[in-house]
Design a protein around this nucleic acid. Structure first.
Lengths: 113, 113
DNA sequence: CTTTCTATATGGCATTACCTAGTAGCTATC
DNA sequence: GATAGCTACTAGGTAATGCCATATAGAAAG
């Protein structure tokens, strides 16, 4: 339980950037999408602080619009800087994934040798 | 540069467990393998503290043996607990990878729809 | 002997960002 | 008018853990 926490570091931010990049959306919905993707323990208290942080960094722009069901929604979209950061995340994520997988795949090729 | 740092959290430990699990080895060599896998900025000052930490947790056992080239090497191998932790890491890593990839793949299926 | 390569150790920092828990406000339903 | 679901926000805790600088030392080479 504490193990995944560490593994999330730096990953959540990237995922949120990606979700917003796919479609202008708001915090509550971002949260639902993360849960749906399997990050089942993620809740609003985790997502909102990240959203605010990203907005402060200038990676997101926000705009409030009424909701048919509750208080106003705060819709986010990526700025140009945000797009750049998202692309960098993809790069780093792909690299890291490749490196880790390479280490684990060595076992298989060893067994075949 | 600070970006990958966050992404490494929890991952480095798992990689080191895996490397040692594949073959009894020592810190300096672990370091070389990580560099070879692409973690090119990793150095002894990063690896040794992790090794010592893992030993203290009871996941590794150490034994010193002479080296033909320098001071004695400290060879590590996994304990039973270490094996369990390694398996847990694989589980969490696979899960996390799947979740992140799912979020990014949604874009592709959207574009096809 | 000085340098270089091999090899281990460690104190402290950064530090950040995840997580809990709680507040509050709007809409709809019953 | 009470409950339930939707929506946003904040304070504070914390703890892990990657990273750096530095020291030490054996062996080979020049």
């Amino acid at each position: 339980m504490a193990k995944q926490t560490q593994m999330l570091k730096g990953v959540l931010e990237g995922c949120i950037l990606e979700i917003i990049s796919q479609e202008e959306t708001y915090g509550y919905a971002v949260c639902e999408q993360l849960v749906q993707a399997g990050f089942s323990h993620i809740n609003e208290g985790i997502v909102y602080p990240i959203l605010i942080r990203l907005e402060k960094k200038g990676w997101l722009l926000a705009e409030k619009r009424p909701s048919p069901y509750g208080p106003k929604r705060k819709y986010y979209r990526l700025t140009e800087m945000g797009e750049r950061e998202r692309n960098e995340f993809i790069l780093h994520w792909t690299e890291t994934k490749g490196r880790v997988d390479q280490i684990f795949e060595r076992r298989i090729s060893d067994e075949n040798a």
